[in-house]
Amino acid sequence: MNLNLIKEKIFNSKNISANETKFIFDLIMNGEISEVEAAGILIGLKTKSESKDEILGAAKSMREKSLKISSPENTIDTCGTGGDMSGTLNISTSAAIVAASAGAKVAKHGNRSISSRSGSADMLEKIGYKISADQSYLENSLSKNNFCFLFAQYHHSAMKHVINVRKQLGTRTIFNLLGPLTNPANTKKQLLGVFDSKWVRIHCEVLKDLGSNHALVVHGEDGLDEISLSAHTKIAELKDGLITEYVFNPQDYGYALIKNSDIQGKDPDYNAKTFMQMLEGLNKKFQHIVELNAGAALYLSQQSKSFKEGFKLARHVIETNITKQFVKKIIKN
């Protein structure tokens, strides 16, 4: 393939194929393209808006270059794109822990804070969880404890070639869309939140092309990259090879709406403390939005047959101290 011809397409606002995108991102991730060229490509893609095939090709490149672990068949991830600028507590990380305590196997992919004050890695460290890059440790933790945390910086070392470019650009690029699509455990089931509704269908189609067999891609109408408790949530569900789109209303399941200001996060210490307080029954509004997202994860992992059953199970493990004891277990190991 010809790099200059592909760049010319991008600069003329033409979409490129998945294969062309993979070719160009392989060069970027190998450090074979200058930072100026990489910046031009990223801005060109952003300006015209990234297509499904471009996201697919870039995700394939990142997956190939990641440090992988093996995982059981029903393993799930609850990683979102971030970037919703909502500043909430760590909802998806909390939901991952609750779901794991209820029997789901969760390979949580995440990073340090980028667009929020507390990323998943930051919060987990503050509750005492050991972040590791050791493959056997991670696989053993997932097998025995139902949970492991896959720290993006440990598993995607090729990203070092674009760190400076991304910092200098100071704006969202295609890389903000790729994180949830590149889980090193190659999970086939996923709860994936996106920061803009235009990516709901596209990300679901990309997951299908990447081999996922059951996924929920979600975007709250209030802007959250989670299943929201302050608004309806747009969902695209991949199941049995088909994608279905619908709108989720938490009030249909007996939940009262909250304000996002009720679940505002702060620094990692505060977010970790609030999570632990939730396990003591001290923050019901936060608990309820965690139930929604953990319940959806439990539905994906086949621990429940429906959203309703999943929400009930998530509430049960929180309110009977099962999750609290589970946290103590994963901190010790």
Rank of each mutant, 00 (worst) to 15 (best):
S143L: 11
Y246G: 00
V106W: 07
L5Y: 14
M62I: 03
A39V: 10
G103M: 13
D269L: 09
D252V: 03
N30E: 15
L89T: 07
K105L: 05
Q287R: 14
L229A: 04
K46F: 08
I10A: 11
I322V: 05
E237T: 01
E221F: 11
N30A: 15
P72A: 10
G193I: 02
S66R: 15
L181T: 00
F23A: 05
Q325A: 04
S118E: 12
D122I: 01
A96C: 13
V98S: 06
I235K: 06
R166W: 09
S94A: 14
L169F: 08
V106R: 06
H161W: 12
I114R: 07
S13W: 11
H203R: 02
K239I: 00
C148L: 04
G128V: 00
S86H: 14
Y270M: 05
A121M: 09
T320Q: 06
V200Q: 04
N15L: 12
S143W: 15
D262R: 02
S116E: 08
L5G: 06
N111R: 06
K234Y: 14
F151M: 01
D134S: 08
C148T: 02
D240F: 01
M276G: 00
C148P: 01
V290N: 13
P250M: 13
K48E: 12
S157L: 15
N164W: 03
A99P: 10
D262G: 09
D53S: 08
G40E: 15
K259D: 14
A133T: 02
E73H: 05
H316S: 06
I243C: 04
T21L: 11
H288F: 09
L313P: 01
G295W: 13
E205S: 04
N186I: 05
P184W: 12
H156P: 08
N186P: 01
L242I: 01
Y299L: 06
C79H: 12
A18L: 11
G128H: 03
S306V: 00
L298W: 08
L313V: 02
E280W: 09
P72R: 13
